[in-house]
Simulated assay, not measured.
Amino acid sequence: MAGATRSLGCRRLLGTHLKNLLHTKHCVLFDCDGVIWNGDKAVAGAPEVVSLLKKRGKSVFFVTNNCTRSRDSYLSKFSRLGFCDVVQSDVVSSAYCSAIYLRDMAKVQGKVYVIGSDGVYTELYEAGVPVVGREPDVPGATIYDCPLDSDVKAVLVGYDDKLNFLKLAKACCYLRDPNCLFLATDGDPWHPRPRGRVSPGSGSLAAALETAAERKATVIGKPSRFMFQCIVSRFGVDPARTLMVGDRLETDVLFGRSCGVDTVLALTGVSTLQQALGYRDSTDPQGAACVPDYVVDTVADFLPALDEER
């Protein structure tokens, strides 16, 4: 089906078409922020959609670049917002996948210096990956006299609202070693905040360090394929029978397209229909990779098709 529709893109999913599409899919991937919730409020109908998909025997995963929470913390939020049947293995975050990459793919033999928040540290601890970076700095310490750990073999950058110059400087020193691995949890440039405000994302923090270290980070989160590979390797998911639902064209849709799955843009988050149509009508080949196959106003649009399904 993907090959038959991608030449057009941005098709509205309604009625029988939506029901038929869901019938062909055994797995649905959801982004979280802007798709199933906004801040601390669930998108109307989203808990019911997730529950009905699971009752219909579909595999459901939540693929999020938000690295600030551990999977257990996500479970608490799901429960609080009315998602009653989500389990830990459903949650695939950039923090969790970064830990898996360091442990199982890179097989780092040493410590990881972390710029990040609780979610990253927790997932690394649970994966058995030794870390440094959380220790309080000595008051008045500078890059000229602060201690550096000689056993650091990787630097991981995630969202850190306590970022300071000394953290960046330490990371830059570690990355002077060409054998020191350089990872970013995700490349999100910014995040929407209440009242129309925004905050820098992990991608902007990683970009600062990339400039200072004169190196490029390996990005673990969307649109990198690694998060999908984690799901495939553990659950045997078939890309042809998978649907990706997201709100950000340059991450969620690009991620889905690069993984060979059909994509749906939900208009409850960052990207707009006008932006999607702009990519569709552009001659830029890079923009073409950000064109969603389908568009819905909200994931609640799935409800009629799921209610009718037998």
Rank of each mutant, 00 (worst) to 15 (best):
V49G: 08
V50M: 11
S51D: 08
S51F: 12
L53V: 08
K54V: 13
K55A: 15
K55Q: 15
K58C: 10
K58N: 09
S59C: 07
F61M: 04
T64H: 00
N65M: 09
N66A: 04
C67F: 06
S70P: 06
S70T: 05
S73K: 12
S73E: 14
L75S: 03
L75G: 05
S76E: 11
K77L: 08
F78A: 00
S79L: 10
S79M: 09
R80C: 13
G82Q: 03
D85Y: 01
D85G: 04
D85Q: 05
V86W: 03
V87R: 15
Q88A: 13
Q88K: 14
V91Q: 05
V91I: 13
V92T: 09
S93N: 03
S93R: 03
S94L: 11
Y96C: 05
Y96W: 12
C97G: 10
A99V: 02
A99I: 01
I100F: 13
Y101W: 15
L102E: 13
R103W: 07
R103D: 13
D104G: 08
D104P: 09
A106M: 12
K107Y: 04
V108T: 15
V108M: 12
G110F: 00
K111N: 10
V112Q: 11
Y113A: 05
Y113I: 01
Y113L: 04
V114T: 02
V114I: 07
I115K: 00
G116P: 02
S117C: 13
S117K: 10
D118T: 12
D118S: 11
G119N: 01
G119E: 00
G119W: 01
V120C: 04
V120F: 06
V120K: 01
V120D: 01
E123A: 02
L124F: 07
Y125F: 15
Y125C: 15
E126H: 07
A127T: 06
A127E: 07
P130L: 08
V132N: 00
G133K: 00
R134E: 11
R134C: 11
R134L: 10
R134N: 11
E135N: 03
E135V: 06
P136I: 06
D137T: 11
V138Q: 10
P139Y: 06
P139L: 05
G140Y: 06
G140I: 06
G140K: 07
A141Q: 01
T142S: 13
T142N: 05
T142V: 04
I143G: 01
Y144C: 12
D145Y: 00
D145A: 02
C146M: 09
L148R: 02
D149I: 07
S150C: 01
S150N: 05
D151H: 14
K153R: 15
V155N: 08
V155Q: 08
V155D: 05
V157N: 09
G158V: 07
D160Y: 02
D161T: 15
D161P: 11
D161S: 15
K162G: 14
L163W: 09
L166Q: 11
L166A: 11
K167L: 06
L168V: 14
C172W: 12
Y174L: 10
L175C: 02
R176I: 03
P178H: 12
N179R: 11
N179Q: 13
C180H: 08
L181M: 10
L181N: 08
